[in-house]
Amino acid sequence: MPQAKRVSMAMVAARAGVSGQTVSRVANDSPRVDPETRARVERAMAELGYRPNRAARALRTGRTHTLGLVAQTLSTVGNSRMLQAVAESAETRGYALTVVTLGADGVIDDAFDRLRDQGVDGAIVLNEATALARDADAAGLRLIVVDSPSDDRFTVVGTDHAAGARAAVEHLLAAGHGLVHHLAGPRGSFAASERERGWREAHAAAGADAPEIVRGDWSAASGHEQVSRMLAAGEVTALFAANDQMALGALRAVAESGRRVPDDIAVIGFDDIADAADFQPPLTTVRQDFDALGEHAVRALVTAIEGGDSADLLLAPQLVVRASA
């Protein structure tokens, strides 16, 4: 079978009705193209299936048009959703993506070394890995960190986890629950600590003492185990789980105890994963906009790569009320 003919810049130029130099400028992200012309050229590129030669472009610009992504693990739903969002956003901007996972005992300096060796133009650091990034040597790498305290060394993009947790707990307190128990995420996670902070602040604002927390590892199995112990130890009428997977395990533990959700125990999760509406009962949860997080993280990184300035950004989550609370 004959190979398809490679689409050239000249072919794109003819389709868009511009010069070859204009197509080159668009392909190399030159600011010297007005928005209307850029849009016309990009449309012609998409229609013809034009793909820039990355190696040649790297030689011309000194940039590889490749972004790095560092995560402790991709096994959690939040991290896998972020990977998908970052990959899609990078692709729309003409950037490739290199992913490095650390594992439980990974060293983030080694990850940064690997990314530097591969010539990435910058990197995005996700969630649990952000704590490691604050003590790492990222010299020579432009960084965008997702979910982290503010830091002068890099731009932070994240969700207002504390606000989302407060909204969840306030919803339960307003429904007449005197206390809301908390199934927290693992120590060392910034998102988990912020969700715990919001849970505590909601109790304090209501003049109530927050009960003792139990802690899981983000998995449904840990939610089932910890909530089973919680139910055996004392009275619980309302539970805020730090993510939807642990909430799923909690729902199973409640059912096994002979209680009903929400009649006996109300349950709220966090994230609004794709399956949350299909839990039994459908899960009330706090929605994170993973697509927007990925888009803002990539946009901030590309802006930094191109010499611009980007500011920290905190996205507001949304409480989605369903049948579990």
Rank of each mutant, 00 (worst) to 15 (best):
A162Y: 04
A174Y: 09
T155H: 03
A232H: 10
D137C: 04
L293N: 15
Y50K: 13
R57S: 01
W218I: 04
M45F: 07
F270Q: 15
V33R: 04
D105F: 15
P52T: 04
A304K: 15
T98G: 04
V156F: 00
A165Y: 02
A56F: 03
G68S: 08
M11R: 12
A316L: 11
L293R: 03
G308I: 06
F112C: 12
V18E: 02
V107N: 11
G78L: 12
V23S: 02
Q226S: 02
D291T: 09
P2W: 02
P282N: 00
R259T: 05
H203N: 07
S324A: 13
R259F: 13
S80G: 09
V70L: 03
V157N: 12
D113V: 08
L183D: 02
R25G: 09
A255G: 08
V169R: 03
S148T: 01
L143I: 06
V77Q: 15
M82Y: 15
H161E: 03
Q226E: 09
A4N: 12
T285L: 01
V145M: 11
A58K: 10
D271A: 14
H181S: 14
D271I: 10
A55K: 15
V254H: 06
V12Q: 02
D147Q: 14
A241V: 10
A163S: 12
D135P: 04
I124S: 11
W218P: 03
I273E: 04
A192P: 11
N127D: 13
A13V: 02
H177D: 05
V227Y: 12
Q318M: 08
G140I: 03
S80N: 08
R287S: 01
G62L: 06
E88N: 07
E170F: 01
G164A: 03
S324K: 15
A277S: 11
M1Q: 14
A276L: 07
A206K: 04
D113A: 15
T73Q: 07
R195S: 07
I305E: 00
R287T: 02
A276I: 02
V120M: 00
F112M: 09
R134K: 14
G176C: 03
V18R: 06
S193C: 04
G216Q: 00
T284M: 01
E295G: 05
H161W: 01
L69M: 14
M246K: 12
A250N: 08
H182I: 10
A165Q: 08
A325V: 13
H181Q: 14
P149H: 02
D263F: 07
A10H: 12
Y50G: 12
T159P: 14
A292V: 01
A55I: 10
A208H: 10
P2E: 07
D244Y: 00
L143F: 15
G185Y: 14
T98A: 13
A192D: 13
N53V: 08
N79W: 12
G294K: 01
A304V: 10
L97E: 00
E36D: 07
A184E: 09
W218E: 06
D121H: 05
A241L: 06
T285G: 01
P262C: 06
R114I: 11
L319A: 06
Q245S: 13
R51V: 14
G198N: 02
R252I: 06
G216L: 04
L319I: 03
D272K: 15
R25M: 07
T284I: 03
P2S: 09
D110P: 01
D209I: 03
D135S: 05
V180F: 06
T22F: 09
A131F: 09
V41G: 09
R187A: 14
I268T: 11
A165K: 05
I265W: 01
V157I: 11
D160N: 12
